[in-house]
Simulated assay, not measured.
Amino acid sequence: MPTPKVLHVITGTSIGGAEMMLFRYLRAMGPAKDRHRVVSMMPPGPVAERIAQLGVRVDSLHVDVVWNIAGGVIRLQRLIDRLEPCVVQGWMYHGSLLASLAVRLARREEVGLVWAIHHSLSEPRREKRATRAVLHALCRLGGRTDVITYCARQACQQHVAFGFPADRNQVVPNALDLSEFAPDPLARSRLQAAAGIPRGRRIIGTIARSHPMKDHAAFVAALACLLREGHDVQGVLIGAGQPDGPAVQAARAAGIADRIVALPARDDIAALVPGLDAYLLSSAWGEALPVAVAEAMAAGVPAVVTDVGDSGWLVQDCGESCPPRRPDLMAKGLARILALSPDDRCALGLACRARIEHVMSMPRYVGTYAQIHAAAMSRRSRARPVGAHA
């Protein structure tokens, strides 16, 4: 069976876990990427430029406000009619919604439809009202899908409980290129220079945009606990909205502003992350399988995570897991990592990397999606002869 022509519809192309996963997936495909094309619902972001540099075209529907969605669906439907893809794959909630509506509007029963869900749903009431509306719409549209992929087991269970179809699901963990994220003895000096951190200070970091679900106030509170216990630590947060964001405000209120460095999103994360002593994921909800944690682990950095989504499953015995909104327990987990001897710390770092290599192989990811696209095409060919319209 020839490589299918796949049209990926993603919510946006800013720096984020799902966005970077799409970029890395396309990069890992080699020449087969020429059969793929990307459409961003929102105006182009930095990941769009990276994808375009691979030679994959990125179109934008320029839907940046809710009342533009109808126009975006029409533009996407026209693109589907012109390109005649074999499979349309929606990424994240809004991308999946637009993909579904456009395929229906185009009346292309022969086109496979795949959703890629990269969000957990432990507390639906915490989602924005507009997001909840999208979720309910997806429940109604789910019958047209051929495969729904989830990057985490808990995310799959939570969405089925919410009302998503239960009979066409597949868990596909995110993947990493281990040549990109790896231990690097020079990373610490680069990180110290980028963040202005004195030598000798232990560095606790997180890579994430500023968002309430990330609970960066808990990150700061955990750091404050460590400082009270006599640990010479520095917190580093890197991501969109971090400078002067809630973490910085919480640090000022706690009197530890000099121990928090908040940097905007950067494109050299792989060169900095190996310089951390530990990674802290403080999220209160919303995580599925956090790519940033996996990147740190691949670089040999042990992580303390809240047990949200599949975060606990990811780290297993290579780090520490605790309930969300418990900065005291986050601090205890970090303290145990900081107390390790150099030999034990090295062994733990190697175990972290081995864990990621085992569960997040990029070749396996590419092969799995090739099978999913083929399965969607096969299901459609049984439903209606290729080329027939409803």
Rank of each mutant, 00 (worst) to 15 (best):
M297S: 01
W285L: 07
R266P: 00
I260T: 06
T306N: 02
A254F: 12
V301H: 01
G241L: 00
G309S: 11
G275H: 10
D277L: 10
V304P: 03
V305T: 11
G275T: 09
A303T: 09
A284I: 00
D267G: 14
V305S: 09
P246G: 08
G312D: 04
P274R: 15
I260W: 04
R266H: 00
R252E: 09
S311H: 12
Q249F: 00
V261G: 02
L281Y: 09
D307A: 15
A292Y: 07
A251I: 05
R252A: 15
A298R: 06
G312L: 07
V305K: 13
S283I: 02
L263Q: 02
L272C: 10
W285I: 10
A250H: 09
G255C: 13
I260G: 01
A247V: 11
A254Q: 14
A296W: 07
D307L: 10
S283P: 02
I269K: 09
M297C: 11
P290W: 03
G300Y: 06
A284Y: 02
S283Y: 09
P264H: 01
T306C: 09
A257G: 05
P302I: 02
T306W: 04
I269W: 03
D268R: 15
A284P: 00
P274N: 12
I269M: 15
V305Q: 07
A253W: 10
A270L: 04
A250K: 14
V248G: 15
G309A: 12
A262D: 01
D310H: 13
A251P: 00
G241C: 07
A247R: 10
P246Q: 11
P302F: 04
D244V: 05
D244A: 13
A292E: 06
P243W: 14
S311T: 05
T306L: 05
D258S: 15
A247C: 13
A298V: 01
P274C: 08
Q249W: 02
A294R: 02
G309C: 09
A299T: 00
D268Y: 12
V304G: 03
Y279G: 04
A253C: 07
M297R: 06
A271H: 13
A292C: 13
I269T: 14
A298K: 08
I260C: 04
A278D: 07
M297W: 01
L289N: 06
A299N: 08
M297D: 01
A240P: 03
L289Q: 13
Q242M: 11
L281C: 14
G312H: 12
S282D: 05
